[in-house]
Design a protein around this nucleic acid. Structure first.
Length: 151
DNA sequence: GCCAACGTTGGC
DNA sequence: GCCAACGTTGGC
């Protein structure tokens, strides 16, 4: 089907990274980068649900605590090469490839997200430890407005 | 540095 | 299968 249908089906996500481990600046420098290291069953199931062309906010956890950019799913889930698979066992974890799309003109801090009543139900707040989560189209649009993102 | 949330592990 | 102990994440 044409692009309109693919666009309508595009889903939105938020992925977290500690900038000390892997930062937005590194993502930009590398262009496309495997999103590895997810070791949580719920987060992994969200990675598996990602489709090529889906977009995600890139959030800096611990240091910064703000949405700093937008990435796009460039390759759907495949076995995470950083997993140490025990002898005779099947690989368990997956990664996706993420491509940097662009920086948020105004990074959106966690404090601003918490201060916005319309975002009270967002996974980032309700389940603070989850590192990969879906974002509803409405929340995506609102966060884009808050960050000055014209996408 | 502390603590809440929560996932995992292991004894029973 | 239950649950205490422990480890990790991530905000404060």
């Amino acid at each position: 089907m044409p692009a309109a249908s693919a666009l309508a089906e595009r889903r939105f996500w938020l992925v977290k990274s500690e900038p000390d481990a892997f930062s937005w600046q590194q993502q930009v420098a590398n262009g496309t980068e495997p999103w590895t290291g997810v070791r949580n069953a719920q987060a992994a199931s969200f990675l598996r649900a990602m489709r090529r062309g889906d977009r995600a906010f890139f959030y800096h956890s611990n240091v910064g605590k703000e949405i700093v950019g937008v990435v796009e799913v460039a390759r759907e889930a495949y076995p995470d090469p950083t997993e140490a698979v025990p002898e005779g066992r099947a690989p368990r974890w997956v990664c996706t490839d993420m491509r940097a799309v662009g920086p948020m003109p105004r990074p959106v801090p966690l404090s601003a997200i918490k201060a916005e009543p319309a975002l009270a139900e967002i996974g980032l707040i309700r389940q603070s430890r989850l590192s990969v989560m879906p974002i509803s189209p409405e929340h995506w649009a609102l966060l884009c407005r808050m960050g000055g993102w014209e996408g």
